[in-house]
Design a protein around this nucleic acid. Structure first.
Lengths: 169, 169
DNA sequence: GCAATACTGTATGGCGTCGTACAGTATGTG
DNA sequence: CACATACTGTACGACGCCATACAGTATTGC
């Protein structure tokens, strides 16, 4: 079984390598989380939101959107669902009548405990055979990579739409 | 420099660490590719398809779907678009009347060259400051991680939908 | 005080992908 | 041969997310 370890030998077009593996792995990890969280009838985004609010208390929607790395419009829909199911509630911010303070209900807090357990269990499984140093090295390289990506995107948006063949400085 | 390691301290809910970074990095990488490929009016999926076919020749849709890690239904739509724009063409497989052999046109082959260049340039930028060994280590860890994910997903789907609180074996 | 600007959350339309169901075709089995 | 099974590509509906545009509210400058 699972001789389809893919993504390397024959799967990857030679013109993509580590980057492809990275994205494939990320997709699989996300899928694993979604898969486990399905038992709670949640996806990763919803679970992350609940866990975040349970941990840090009432939060505005834009801050939640930033922390979960999705748009303000999308976060609204997520909150709607969770609110309908009674896991979070919106209370008006006394200092700013534009913002909703999103917080967990008692049900939500209880659910957050389940989420934390699912997360802990799964992360333990994913760590199997991977040492702490390796994980830290991984994190370091990815951080470096993120910086490079940032720079690359900046460079792109500045060049704007000039010519399909940019000068290689 | 880099005493501010990571985007970690406040960005990530503590219950997710390397996994979060992994997924965030992957998203950024994908965004960078999409961003650069926008100059060719393509997204990463379309570009990957063209590059793959240009490299390996006419391919059936299911095989393309497998290699690009998307569903058979989705690949059909992608091919439709590229066909409409004249970059790929479908020819019936003489041996099996169910399958289409998807191949690049001359325009598509020319476009593939542009894609390859975009890819090469961007990947060089992303490699900045990251040694070959580090990249290999990264790939190794991620492969290991993929195996663990596979196992974890298997384990989940076997438990199926029993009870929200699975026994921790 | 009042206008200009910036920000928050929402509504809307669009995109990419998934899952399922389906018709057409191939392959195996009696 | 007929029949069951497996496979290919497609049609359809659904989901999650984005980008944009918008109304309501805060903040700044005059």
């Amino acid at each position: 079984m699972t001789q389809h370890l893919t993504t390397h030998e024959l799967d990857s077009p030679p013109w993509l390598r580590v980057e492809t593996t990275l994205m494939a792995t990320a997709r699989m990890v996300r899928q694993a989380f979604d898969c486990r969280l399905a038992a709670l009838d949640l996806n990763l985004t919803q679970a992350s939101l609940i866990a975040y609010v349970a941990e840090f208390g009432a939060t505005s929607q834009t801050r939640l959107a930033d922390h979960l790395s999705i748009g303000r419009a999308a976060i609204g829909a997520v909150i709607d669902q969770l609110q309908r199911r009674g896991f979070v509630e919106r209370t008006p911010d006394p200092n700013d009548r534009r913002v909703w303070r999103v917080d967990v209900t008692d049900n939500g807090r209880s659910l957050a405990a389940d989420i934390a357990e699912v997360d802990e269990v799964l992360r333990a499984e994913l760590r199997y055979g991977i040492g702490r140093e390796e994980r830290q090295a991984l994190a370091w390289v990815m951080t470096r990579l993120q910086n490079n990506v940032d720079a690359a995107i900046d460079r792109t948006t500045h060049h704007s739409t000039t010519s399909p063949t940019p000068d290689n400085s």
